[in-house]
Each structure stands twice: as C-alpha cells, then as structure tokens.
C-alpha cells in the first residue's frame, strides 16, 4: 500500500464516488481526503454535481402505462 498523491486521487475520484474501486484503493483515497482539504473540496463538488443530476434525471412513469403494457401481452400468448 502506498500513499496516493493529489493527481492520483483526482484520477480515482469518479470511481471512488461510484464505489467502483477495490477496498484497498478506496481506503487510500479516503486517507488522502482526510489529510488534504483541497482534494476533499474537489470531491465535495463532484459528489454534489452527481447528486443533482441523479435527482433530476429520472421521470415519473405515466399513469396507466404499466397496465397498458401488461394488457398488450394478451395478444402474444
């Protein structure tokens, strides 16, 4: 296990926030963030942007669509 520098940590930012790193890498990034205010702020901004887009990206299923779809299966049986 080696200490990551800021460049490496930023490179791993997206995967860290998506929990796509190995647990060892996840811990290394976390350790760096505990010691580096600048990287911690950059991660906060990135995470905040992801939360915003995830909250906005979805759509409400139109009323009755599920029923209409299920009814359309009648002709396929």
């Amino acid at each position: 296990m080696h200490d990551m520098d800021c460049r490496e940590v930023i490179k791993h930012m997206a995967q860290y926030l998506d929990r796509e790193l190995s647990s060892e890498e996840q811990q290394e990034v976390q350790k760096h963030l505990g010691e580096c205010g600048s990287c911690a702020n950059a991660f906060r901004w990135e995470n905040s942007m992801l939360v915003l887009v995830k909250n906005c990206a979805g759509e409400e299923l139109p009323q009755g669509l599920t029923t209409r779809i299920f009814e359309s299966f009648d002709c396929c049986e």
Binding site: I10, N41, A42, W45, E46
Partner: peptide, 11 residues
C-alpha cells in the same frame, strides 16, 4: 484524457 474537477476549478 486527464480527469479534472472542472466545476470545482471553475468555481
């Protein structure tokens, strides 16, 4: 190719 915290840097 290099990832960068674009919004954070702009801000």
């Amino acid at each position: 190719a290099d990832p960068e915290p674009y919004l954070y840097l702009q801000a």
